[in-house]
Design a binder for these strands. Structure first.
Lengths: 197, 197, 197, 197
DNA sequence: AATGAATGAGAATTCATTCAT
DNA sequence: TATGAATGAATTCTCATTCAT
């Protein structure tokens, strides 16, 4: 029996990221993905039900990974809320810094999926944001963050802001250096909620 | 006499907003737009070169209007930088509050156009952000805002954050009330850059 | 405005009969039908929803025509039941004698449609058989046909028998001359139900 | 030792009947057949050249069996032509009464094969019909059947009629009870050719 | 200007068959 | 023999755009 190569699925996902980033999800062709992955068109369908499920899987993996990484830090007692917030932001940036293509897909297509029924990455995505909110709550309790922060607005505003900066970097890395933007963001976020003085 | 023409063109744009919002740009059909506008498919092409140019025009109009509105306030000497920043944010929200469909299209499709060559709405879009940056600079000069704010990060971060909140509102207005989010944002933005104390 | 040619639908149907007869419904390509009809592939879909609906329409037209023709004779008082039965059979044969292709499609594909939900030709088809049954009933009442004939079996048996002979003729007209088979059938049918003596 | 082989081949054939009956030959998948047979897709091709040859084999087996059964009765001197005709019809019905699936395949797909070159079941099929004709000839010689019967028409008409009734039964056994139809058919057939009085 | 019929390129998906193991 | 992963040809249907009227 011809045995499954074992990494074909991964190759498809990697190829898909590249093609989706280059052409946009809607203009991407399965045949291009297959070609880049070095397999036949039909084989794509051995691993994925259809084009959308590839995109879904990409986001699922991305957010599952982020959640996994954050969880490890989340409960640590030796870190302040401010430090945890920094870590959260770092995680996102680290996740993309070596994968500009993934960043492009992330900023361009997440909305599309979100508007399309209940994709399965949603639970991880919300878990991540939820942990962020929790960290801020903790900071408020310790008197580091202001009491009157609107947590819902904060979390989505921050998420949107970060996403947009990643977008800019992914398209023009020279003009928008990721590291510089990362520290700029940290400052903004912390200032926006820190107790005055 | 442009009445007839202007009328139809406008009707096409309005229909397009509704259809794009409902189906997403890529899945929208020209025939649906024509039908909603009450004209024939062929007529659409008398007013627009192709599907993309309708979308382009939508954004062009949107940003031109915002720029026009902001310009009027921008130079006023009787307003502080903080007040001007509030106005800027208000303008964006006011532009959408009665046009949820436009908001949906705005958040979902602006990236697509941005990644597609140099759409002509870009100059207005950048002018708007530029004025925002200028307002912040003014605030810094007057000692209201912190000197060390990264202006590039600030403007894009803020833009991204606002956009995302508008997105949430457009899809779930009950859960994300626009007015509440607007004041939450104002607080965050101002706190994030205000001089401590 | 480009006006509808008015007979394009008909040309598609005629082309479809030829292609379906040659290749069988399942192996027929829309592109072949379009080509034979002298139009583009896309145009086929202006007139028909999909491939199956073309086939459906073919049968619908066929049976509607047969029913129409039979109705005219059905009520005549000057004809005996025997004569009416002859007419019924003649109608079917006449319907095919100049359209061997239609005959082929008829015998090969009617079952497929019948097994596929409720195609709309069914009502005509059943009306036709129903009239046949009624004619036989009439003959029984007048003492021409035997009382103990199983009408259900008779009508379906006869239909199946005729269909099969048409099949043979359509494929090998030389070996199975239609006219000869027609009279053979008439004899069989009448003998099978005629009152002995 | 053919146990293993013979076994699997048979299982494939049985599975194929079920799947062909359910989905129609053209829409049946080899993978479904393999699954139902409890073997792998590849194994199907160890026993059959391709999909069509499975169908072929089904018909070949069916008709070979019928011929074999008929032959045993065919030469008996103690039976009249009428009795032999009854037997012929019984054989067909008995062949299906416990195999509705086979009946469905038989009525739906035999034409397809017949139109497709020279399938190898043809010789059995024709032998069967030939014997039927011979029986009728015998009856004519003995003065039981009418001299003027068109034997060709008779045999094909009868075959077509029987097939159609089997079709009806296979799809709606409640509405078209096989036994009742069988006796109805016998009556019709015999009456259609019996010498008057 | 207006119409809407006509076009035809385009792409996702299926599945019989092959073949490496 | 047996497996089932891999192949890739094949075909329906869609829809932006064109164009005859």
């Amino acid at each position: 029996m011809r045995t499954k190569t074992g990494n074909k699925e991964q190759r498809i996902l990697e190829a898909a990221v590249a093609i989706f980033a280059r052409d946009g999800y809607h203009h991407s062709r399965i045949s291009d993905i297959a070609e880049l992955a070095g397999i036949s068109v039909g084989s794509v369908y051995l691993y994925f039900d259809n084009k959308e499920s590839i995109l879904n899987r990409l986001f699922s993996d991305l957010w599952a990974r982020l959640v996994g990484q954050l969880k490890a830090q989340y409960r640590r007692q030796d870190l302040t809320a401010v430090e945890k917030l920094d870590i959260m932001i770092d995680l996102i940036f680290n996740g993309f810094i070596h994968h500009a293509d993934l960043a492009v897909v992330f900023v361009n297509e997440q909305n599309f999926l979100l508007n399309h029924g209940r994709p399965d990455f949603i639970k991880h995505y919300e878990a991540y944001l939820q942990m962020g909110t929790q960290i801020v709550r903790e900071g408020i309790k310790h008197g580091v963050f202001r009491k009157d922060v609107d947590l819902v607005v904060l979390r989505h505003f921050t998420f949107g802001g970060i996403r947009h900066l990643i977008h800019l970097w992914a398209h023009e890395p020279k003009r928008f250096p990721l590291l510089q933007m990362r520290s700029g963001i940290k400052e903004l976020v912390k200032n926006s909620i820190r107790v005055a003085r």
